[in-house]
């Protein structure tokens, strides 16, 4: 398939996942913040912005500012709205490779953004977050139901998985950056939609090591870093079948495989002892894998601008 199309599909996957994860995180954290009298609003809000790599100079940072920047700001690719706009923009250039149902879903999501943002102003941000979660579930469902399992589909899934690892890592970083009580662990799990699954697995209240174990290492939960790494690897394996008898050629696959084994063969105790380092490594691996994918598949031709002056200069 065309590199350009592949790239667009990959970014559709990433942006939609980013919008969904951000909506989940905000929905849970904002309500936690409202409900829990013991949380310092300013500190918690800064941590939330920090998750997305934003440092805010204004003082103090409050909930409204956080929702504005991470949810409604259209000019910012890290906000929910920005991500959905970007996803639709990418899909627009690759419409013919998507199913029309999927394109329509992405487009109608984009079209209803202004009215949804407006509604959120009246009915509270939760309405907006539910909308985003619903639409992304629909997009995911249509991806699974109407796309052939060809390379195009794989690029969507690859993008989604890489983004998922990245977001889970960010979330954990924010949580382990602060002293947390049991209710924060519940919040962390909820932000990944993982609380009920967690309870059914562990059957006891959450604590630091069980949450880290579940979100990083669980083999069955689809939002755990381990699971998402596995899915991404499978996509890459199918995209570039093994040629020789030894070693791997795909750089991205190499990076992800190493990151996975870093997690897989470590005990929770070891992970927790140096969690910040492991999270940093995981996030770095995500970024590198992203670059490697771009390098390998997207073949960026920098738009060449012929410049008369330079041409003259060389003669």
């Amino acid at each position: 398939m065309l590199s350009r199309i592949a790239e667009s599909l990959y970014w559709v996957g990433r942006y939609v996942e980013r919008a969904e994860d951000t909506a989940r995180i905000l929905d849970v954290h904002i309500h936690h913040l409202l409900e829990d009298a013991s949380v310092e609003e300013d500190v918690a809000c800064r941590a939330l912005l920090g998750v997305m790599g934003i440092t805010d100079a204004s003082d103090p940072v409050d909930i409204n500012r956080v929702t504005e920047r991470l949810a409604f700001d259209a000019s910012n690719g890290t906000s929910i709205r920005g991500a959905l706009v970007a996803a639709r923009e990418n899909a627009r250039g690759a419409q013919e490779s998507l199913s029309s149902e999927l394109w329509e879903c992405l487009n109608s999501t984009y079209n209803s953004l202004p009215s949804q943002v407006e509604r959120a102003a009246r009915a509270g941000p939760h309405a907006f977050f539910s909308f985003v979660k619903e639409r992304s579930a629909m997009i995911l469902g249509l991806t699974e139901a109407t796309l052939s399992r060809d390379d195009g589909w794989r690029f969507v899934v690859l993008g989604r998985s890489l983004e998922r690892i990245d977001m889970t890592t960010r979330l954990l970083m924010a949580c382990f950056g602060e002293p947390c009580g049991p209710s924060e662990w519940v919040t962390t799990l909820r932000s990944c939609g993982a609380h009920e699954a967690f309870l059914r697995t562990y059957r006891r209240p959450a604590n630091a090591s069980s949450v880290a174990e579940f979100l990083l290492l669980d083999r069955l939960f689809p939002r755990s870093a381990f699971h998402a790494l596995g899915v991404a690897e499978e996509c890459l394996a199918a995209l570039e079948p093994r040629s020789g008898r030894a070693g791997l050629e795909g750089k991205a696959r190499n990076i992800l495989g190493r990151a996975r084994t870093q997690l897989e063969f470590r005990s929770v105790g070891e992970l927790i002892a140096e969690l910040p380092r492991h999270l940093d490594q995981l996030q770095a691996a995500c970024a590198q894998a992203g670059e490697a994918v771009a390098l390998r598949f997207f073949h960026h031709t920098k738009a060449i601008e012929w410049s008369l002056e330079e041409a003259v200069g060389h003669t």
Binding site: W11, R14, G50, M52, T55, G77, E163
Partner: peptide, 10 residues
């Protein structure tokens, strides 16, 4: 240090 911002995409 704060997390790096997410990849902005092409």
């Amino acid at each position: 240090p704060p997390s790096p911002p997410p990849d902005p995409g092409p």
